[in-house]
Simulated scan of single mutants.
Amino acid sequence: MTKKQDALTDADYEALANLRYILRRFTDFSASAAQREGLPTQQHQALLAIKGHRGETPMTVGILSERLVVARHTASELVERLVGGGYVTRETDAHDKRRQTLALTAKAEDVLTRLSAIHRAEIRHMAPRLIELLGDLQTKGPVSKP
């Protein structure tokens, strides 16, 4: 990194701090919304990952662990809790008996629909500010307050 070309400015630090602040506010919003529905944050994230999976292969614990950036055994324990709570079903894969595929139950679909609707609304509310902050970081222009 050359000092003149890539030196961080006070505006860069401010933009990074503001971005972290906005992201933390969204994370707090998300956790609170999930808690109101009776779900821990990680369970909500897992349900969303399962619902949003559009890969060529069905959702599995391995894919879920990758999507949540957690260890496979952590994802497996999470799936156990979701199955126990009536949110997820597991089925043995027809082609590979060692693998189990995951699917959402109607209960999970209902909760996820409510949570996703309020999350989409919050993101739409935050989008202009996020776009502005990302632009500040990209162009090294003046920084505005959150």
Rank of each mutant, 00 (worst) to 15 (best):
33 A>F: 02
12 D>V: 05
48 L>W: 05
5 Q>L: 14
109 E>R: 05
64 L>P: 09
97 K>F: 02
131 I>G: 05
71 A>M: 08
14 E>R: 14
48 L>S: 11
106 A>M: 05
71 A>T: 10
58 P>V: 05
23 L>R: 13
130 L>G: 03
121 A>L: 06
135 G>H: 09
51 K>Y: 01
95 H>Q: 13
115 L>K: 04
91 E>F: 04
63 I>G: 01
27 T>D: 13
127 A>W: 08
80 E>T: 13
38 G>E: 08
76 S>L: 06
19 L>V: 03
104 L>R: 04
55 G>E: 07
67 R>S: 04
15 A>H: 00
86 G>E: 12
127 A>F: 09
106 A>L: 10
50 I>G: 01
97 K>V: 10
33 A>Q: 10
105 T>H: 00
11 A>E: 07
58 P>W: 00
60 T>F: 03
118 I>H: 04
145 K>W: 11
138 Q>S: 06
119 H>V: 00
82 L>G: 02
111 V>D: 12
70 V>L: 05
11 A>F: 02
117 A>V: 07
145 K>V: 11
107 K>D: 14
37 E>P: 03
36 R>V: 03
84 G>H: 07
85 G>I: 07
47 L>A: 00
18 N>P: 02
140 K>F: 04
5 Q>R: 15
124 R>S: 08
108 A>E: 08
88 V>S: 06
108 A>N: 09
40 P>D: 15
82 L>N: 02
69 V>R: 15
105 T>C: 11
103 A>S: 14
140 K>T: 12
34 A>T: 04
31 A>T: 15
93 D>Y: 03
77 E>C: 09
96 D>L: 07
52 G>A: 13
65 S>Q: 10
71 A>S: 11
75 A>V: 09
2 T>H: 12
2 T>N: 13
102 L>E: 04
25 R>C: 12
132 E>A: 14
81 R>D: 11
18 N>E: 10
27 T>P: 02
57 T>N: 11
1 M>I: 02
101 T>E: 03
44 H>V: 00
99 R>E: 06
16 L>S: 07
97 K>I: 10
142 P>G: 09
104 L>M: 06
59 M>V: 03
144 S>G: 07
109 E>C: 00
10 D>W: 07
88 V>H: 05
58 P>M: 05
119 H>N: 14
